[in-house]
Nucleic acid binder design. Structure first.
Lengths: 338, 338
DNA sequence: CTGAAAGCGCTAACAG
DNA sequence: CTGTTAGCGCTTTCAG
């Protein structure tokens, strides 16, 4: 059918059927101790018969808790929001808390609108997930706690959760070094992204510790696209034909790198090892060969966001920027030399 | 700050500040006619001063409408749910309706849980988005209207919205024919998917109308992966070297097809035209050359779902299966012969 | 142990 | 035009 809509069954119906008062029915259903076992059983049975489901709105009116949180994202399309959102969703048990999803699409006006709607729905808290890992404007002082995920707030009084891009760059290069590579190049995306800078910085740091410098002389900044990955690789091969490893700043770029290497009949990983970043599954797993990459651990980030938010809702707010670890995911595009 | 949480301001506070009764304040704020303009102004000003935001829960208690809908998806990861969800989100103006997002991850138990929670939150309606375009079990009779999107319900009494896969297959082949191709092959995914069967069927139909049959003799069913696209293409080239167009059942497969063609130095589109399916942006737009493909119009599907749901909530339920059109998106991997 | 009464924040008659 | 009263569905004192 789909649309059956009789009047919804209320606690009063249950009470009537069980032959008790509404108050008693309420206590029985909520496991309050001061109810005779026999009575409770009768009420529970009645509730089941009518398939009663308590009106959460009414409960919320009393308890001053709606049992909902708002998830304000700037780019749903983006692959970043989704895992975070899933992590958050399952950290709040579905029984306890439901999440309102709002996509502002990078539009401040729309964000304001959504915020207003959420507040008027009396959400108990808010998670704000940004589109890219750069600082975003704080929502300011709000009547409910807020956690910023992925993109940190510009106000240090807020709590922000971000991925460790510097650590990721370091991890990637470290892995390459452990594979015995010494002539390591770094091709990455838009230098305007904090993520590009941080990943490069981590890579450079680790290289320096080893007394190594970058093959090709410098970081190849460009765009977050396969095409740039291809173009940069061609130039790199030209200038530095003896490169033995390439750290790509994203999986998209890495795909471009692999393509050109394949074209030039340079074997991966035996001649050149390649490592990506993001673990964008459809790109990384389908690559030829499957791509070793740095996984952002985004679900974990989402779970942590939910936990911090719960803590804040229970009166233990935290502030500052918390950096969450990323991890290496090895597939076949890297291997020890020889 | 983040957690400021004084007591939320209520209509009573506004009324007091404006020096009127709660009832009058309510009327003033809700644009009821029977309020003197001067009074209304005073109330509105007071509300602004206190940055009052009406408690939607309380309103819902009275109007018997929560102004929320549930979005029950089976695979958030999947690229399919997201655009649908976005379309739905913006078809319900954010001022009117907010959406609860729940991901059941293909687990029936979890689905039941979510359903229960949603119902107890008194959602006004439900959109159920499946993971793959095959029939799924109906949720049965519910106290609110339900729309099934992408994956149709097995109960014809429900309303389901699906994409036109047969039409899509037809569209793809039609385009190839208009490009002057006569030796058209079809490489596609898992034959257990209705989508694979339907796309093939549409392709075959259109071919038949033209008196043509499939290059390579039959449909190449396999898996939804780049690797299968590559493997199938190699076999195809072997068996049928004069093929002049390949219709791939998905963009992933198409990427594999392009790879092998490139390897064999067969030019796309001058020698062989290639068309994909799904318009999975990161794959299609970054392909070499950029991939002509069939766009599923998923946002539109989401919008339509929202509209149908609104209609049903207003008392105009519909049932059956509604098939929504897909559309051709031409990029550079197809072109007229010569 | 059980029920009557009050009230969460808001709206909707109905009097004044 | 404005205020009083009742009540949405539920929980929670407080008497019985």
């Amino acid at each position: 059918m789909g649309a059956a809509a009789n009047r919804a069954v209320t606690l009063r119906d249950v009470a009537r059927l069980a032959g008790v008062s509404v108050a008693t029915a309420s206590k029985a259903l909520n496991g309050q101790p001061q109810v005779r076992a026999e009575t409770r059983a009768r009420v529970v049975k009645a509730a089941e018969q009518l398939s009663f489901s308590p009106n959460t709105l009414a409960q919320g009116l009393i308890t001053q808790r709606s049992g909902t949180v708002g998830l304000l994202t700037s780019d749903l399309e983006g692959r970043f929001s989704i895992p975070i959102l899933m992590g958050a969703e399952d950290a709040f048990g579905s029984d306890q808390t439901s999440v309102f999803l709002c996509d502002a699409r990078g539009d401040t006006i729309r964000e304001k609108h959504h915020l207003r709607a959420l507040l008027s729905r009396r959400v108990d808290g808010l998670i704000v997930v940004g589109a890219r890992p750069d600082t975003r404007p704080s929502l300011g002082e709000l009547p409910v706690p807020v956690i910023y995920a992925y993109a940190p707030s510009d106000d240090p009084a807020d709590l922000s959760l971000v991925t460790d891009n510097i650590g990721g760059g370091r991890l990637a290069v470290d892995h390459l070094i452990r594979c015995g590579r010494r002539r390591i190049a770094h091709i990455t995306g838009d230098p305007g992204y904090g993520a590009a800078q941080d990943r490069a910085r981590g890579a450079l740091d680790r290289l320096a510790e080893e007394g190594l410098s970058l093959a090709g002389g410098e970081v190849w900044f460009g765009m977050w696209s396969e095409a740039w990955g291809r173009g940069a690789t061609r130039m790199l091969l030209d200038r530095c034909p003896d490169v033995d490893a390439i750290f790509a700043g994203s999986d998209e770029i890495a795909r471009g790198v692999l393509d050109v290497l394949h074209e030039e009949r340079i074997d991966v990983p035996s001649q050149v090892a390649v490592i990506g970043f993001d673990n964008w599954h459809v790109l990384a797993a389908n690559a030829r060969p499957p791509l070793t990459t740095v996984d952002l651990n985004l679900e974990q980030l989402g779970r942590t966001a939910a936990q911090r938010l719960s803590a804040a809702m229970d009166g233990t707010p935290v502030s500052g920027v918390e950096t969450l670890p990323v991890r290496l995911l090895t597939r076949e595009s890297t291997a020890p030399l020889r």
